[in-house]
Amino acid sequence: MRIGQLSELTGTSRRLLRYYEEQDLIASTRAANGYRDYGDEYVDKVLQIRGLLDAGLPTRVIRQILPCLNSPRTISISDATPETIATLEQELNSMSERIRCLVRNRDAITSYLDDVRDATARQAA
């Protein structure tokens, strides 16, 4: 698929897709006319990259762990430095805290909606 299609399917700008390529997170082949061509597997990969970036991971860390995410049973990071491990541990802790916060907020909104719905039902009755 061409870059425009990948952009549309993932909601990622063409500029970002080119940046991901510059960072060696994705790769394309070139058609005879010079257009980038991506395999279908890149839709999921780009969405995964975006999720990891949204979670706060830097591209240098994503580049190292991305191969592991494609085949989780064969995790092998030959160049996992203590710094990389520390970064991943920090990111894991940060993600866990954000998840706890999201769960609290979800539960509060659920409770609020339940109360509003109950009040609306009582008024209607």
Rank of each mutant, 00 (worst) to 15 (best):
E41L: 13
E41N: 15
Y42A: 12
Y42R: 13
Y42H: 15
V43S: 06
D44A: 09
D44E: 14
K45Q: 05
K45N: 10
K45R: 15
V46N: 08
V46C: 03
V46P: 00
V46E: 07
L47A: 00
L47K: 06
Q48T: 12
Q48N: 13
I49F: 00
I49P: 02
L53A: 06
L53E: 00
D54S: 09
D54W: 01
D54M: 01
A55E: 02
G56I: 01
G56F: 03
G56K: 02
L57Q: 01
P58V: 06
R60L: 09
V61F: 05
V61E: 08
R63A: 05
Q64E: 12
Q64P: 02
L66R: 00
P67V: 02
P67R: 04
P67C: 06
P67M: 08
C68G: 09
N70F: 09
S71G: 04
S71F: 01
P72L: 04
R73M: 05
T74E: 11
T74F: 07
T74V: 04
I75E: 09
S76L: 07
I77L: 11
S78D: 10
D79E: 06
D79H: 06
P82K: 13
E83F: 12
E83Y: 12
T84H: 12
T84P: 01
T84N: 10
I85L: 14
I85A: 13
I85N: 05
I85T: 14
A86H: 03
T87H: 11
T87G: 02
L88E: 03
L88C: 08
E89H: 14
E91F: 04
E91I: 08
E91N: 10
L92W: 08
N93A: 15
N93P: 08
S94G: 11
S94P: 09
M95S: 15
M95I: 15
S96K: 13
R98A: 09
I99E: 00
I99S: 05
R100N: 12
R100H: 12
C101N: 13
C101F: 07
C101A: 11
L102R: 10
V103T: 10
N105A: 06
N105F: 00
R106K: 11
